[in-house]
Design a protein around this nucleic acid. Structure first.
Lengths: 158, 158
DNA sequence: TTCTAGTATATTGTACGCAATTAATTAGGT
DNA sequence: ACCTAATTAATTGCGTACAATATACTAGAA
């Protein structure tokens, strides 16, 4: 006899909690970054570059977990707005080096100060914040290592 | 004397943890839902409808946190693929009632069983899973209630 | 009833996100 | 040097997301 089907309720799902929280953070950062005309993916791109510049598109992508299909147009927009520079590597012309512009270097302190001020609105102390991040990262690792292709579907074809 | 600028490191950020975990879940569900040719937003739309059908676009949107700009084309695709039906309300023609098709009603058990099987790959016991979801939802509430527009930017204009 | 304010959905425009493909370049073996 | 495989970006196509606007319809006041 088959196992009874376990019900799935939207509001009980971890995926939906993450999906919703991520969208809310997007909205939060859209407002926090509005003075700088930066989107959230552009902001994390700058965070990565402030830690290490220049980087190739590939290296940058490995830090922010985005591929060239997303990064190429994103970086072109950031170049247009003066945040980054894009240059073909002279020794290996397959690669494109992405570097911070002077504007991005100069704006770093202002952006950090403003974002940090906005973060205080969350009203989460450091311990709560760190615990939340670590919990999410723990789940994130589990999700990354799970491969549903291993489960073969035995039901009716749709 | 001004407060020294607090550094912001990408991998320390809760937003980036959520952003990355959400993308990984998207990939996870893309594979888990592949036998049904459903995307993740389409899946949560079905979850909402399995709990309550029919609903107007507005009601549905309040459950999944999406507006008509996203839902209208998404629901049209789902209608094309036979998951839902869209009907103008007869008493109030501004509203469109979204209801489950027979295909969606019939597929529910197969989808639940398959998704539940995939979820076991995460290797998270119920307590760990519930704790992670509650932690994310706690942060999510804080993010929702924070309004960065309240913080006026005092730095240099970009 | 007629005008007006409000409501519900659809549309438009911009920006991701990613799978799949293409194009250019490089490196490695013969 | 020459051919092939591998590597790196860019491009294409599709599906979200969402702000802003447009359109259609309803309800309420005068």
């Amino acid at each position: 006899m088959a196992t009874p089907t376990k019900n799935i309720l939207l509001d009980d799902q971890l995926c939906f909690a993450l999906y919703t929280a991520n969208k809310r953070f997007n909205h939060f950062y859209a407002e926090a970054l509005a003075p700088f005309k930066l989107t959230y993916p552009q902001y994390i791109t700058l965070l990565a570059l402030w830690e290490n510049s220049p980087m190739t598109v590939r290296e940058l992508g490995s830090h922010v977990n985005l591929d060239s299909g997303t990064l190429t147009p994103l970086l072109k927009r950031m170049q247009t707005q003066g945040w980054v520079e894009r240059n073909r590597d002279e020794t290996d012309e397959r690669q494109v080096n992405i570097s911070l512009s002077q504007k991005a270097i100069d704006a770093k302190t202002d952006i950090f100060n403003h974002v940090n001020s906005c973060m205080e609105l969350l009203g989460m102390d450091q311990k709560t914040y760190d615990n939340a991040r670590d919990t999410v990262n723990f789940a994130s690792e589990r999700i990354k290592n799970a491969d549903p292709k291993k489960i073969d579907y035995t039901g009716t074809e749709v």
